[in-house]
Amino acid sequence: MKALPSTLGLGVSMTIGYGTLYYSFSVLAPEIAREFGWSQSFVFAVFSVGLLGGAVSAPIIGRLVDHYGARPVLAFGSIFAAAALALLSKVENGWQFAMVTLMAEFVSIAVQYDAGFAALAQRYGQEARSQITVVTLVAGFASTVFWPLIQWLLTMMTWRDVYLVLAALNLALALPVHALWPSYRREIAGAEQGASDTARAESPSRRTQLVLMAVSLSAGGFVLSAMGASLLVLLGDAGYTPAIATLAGSLIGPSQVGARVMEYVRRGVLSPPVTGLIATGAIFLALSLLFAAALVPAVAVALAFAVFFGIGQGLTSIIRGVLPLHYFGAAGYGRTMGTLSGIRMVLSAAAPVTIIFVNEQLGVAAAIGCLLVMGTVGLVAMIGLSRLPSLPTDAQR
């Protein structure tokens, strides 16, 4: 299946969703803290609490997508995201900042992968895998685009004005893409099929699949969130110079993109569960290498860690979307994604502060050891999931 213009547009809108509501924070937080005289730890603690708001909203937004279709959820999500960003430019105290940040992260789910993948599942059904991969390829450049863009904007305006620009991007670029998204909902043909889906949804097999999927994706989310926030700190404490740590970090992005390109090219060769095993296996191997690098610092080991971690990170974003489709189908996809995302985001929000605390109290080897344990849990759960049957073939039609 070719990458359609609407899918590329959705990739651009997802880039804006992540760039304005997630990646912008790490650049603007120091400016906000400086103006109000707050510590950066307070500002980032508020952001972590905001991420928990996203965990609460994920199941709600998933159900809205199932009930009303993806287009209105995406469109209103862009409007509310713009409103939240505009309000951030007006905050005058800590309580206002906390409340508006919570509002922004609560609505972020409606303009990021969860809603975007649901839109593709509704439109393409079991054939959505390639389109999901395309969206992750485009949106994977969100940090690459928005970090330098926001830094450049800060040379010409205040952080408050930057938030107004980010709000305008949601209205000017993302909203048209979402408003023009085809109003199409894949329906299950016939009452018998509907009854079959209900029975399958309540079956012990489905519950087992859902639990294993939630465990694997949540463990992976914990690792990715912790590493995104603390990688350079961990490598520095392990004895690597800033130059080597930065070099290792710079290899993650290209490895991530390379893995997604290979997934797109060979999407018909490997099943989603096999791709899931590769993703979780790559993360487990990467963390094993990082643990070894913490015990015996070696540049080659640190660089090998970065390559494998990039592969695992790149594929994890894809399996988040394709595994629920593979095992449960398009019916109720939004609700399933919302449930999985809610659990994953709770752990993701807690990960950075947990790993930094362990690192400060027990040392870098203990912190990386905790990450390795989570990587092991994710891999074992994925192995168990891969042994379970997928959605019956007749339900995929």
Rank of each mutant, 00 (worst) to 15 (best):
R320V: 01
A189Y: 03
I150M: 04
A142R: 05
S89H: 14
L371P: 02
V162M: 04
A128F: 04
S317C: 03
I368V: 15
L102K: 02
R320I: 02
D394H: 14
G116L: 10
A98Q: 04
M1H: 11
V265Y: 01
A128E: 07
G342P: 05
A302W: 02
V43H: 05
V138D: 08
A121L: 09
F80H: 07
V307D: 00
T393Q: 15
E127R: 12
S348Y: 08
L235H: 01
T354R: 08
A219G: 14
T275Q: 13
L149A: 14
V307R: 06
A201G: 00
Y327E: 05
S41K: 15
P182L: 07
T136K: 01
S386G: 05
W159M: 05
I252G: 00
G342E: 06
W152V: 12
S108T: 07
W152E: 10
M156H: 14
Q256R: 11
R185I: 13
A365E: 13
R266D: 00
G125H: 06
D161P: 02
G54M: 03
H67A: 04
F80D: 00
R207N: 11
V100N: 02
G221H: 03
A219D: 03
R160I: 09
V373N: 06
I278E: 08
V373A: 09
M382N: 04
Y163E: 02
L149C: 02
A367R: 10
A238L: 15
H178W: 03
A238M: 12
A128G: 07
E187G: 05
G321W: 09
S255W: 00
L175C: 11
D161K: 11
T20M: 10
G253E: 01
L391F: 09
S143I: 05
D394W: 04
S348G: 11
L287V: 03
W147M: 03
A199S: 06
A298R: 02
E105A: 13
G384W: 07
G268T: 11
I109V: 14
A81W: 09
V261G: 05
A174P: 05
T280L: 13
L51H: 00
T158N: 12
F47W: 02
V215T: 07
G17C: 08
E31M: 07
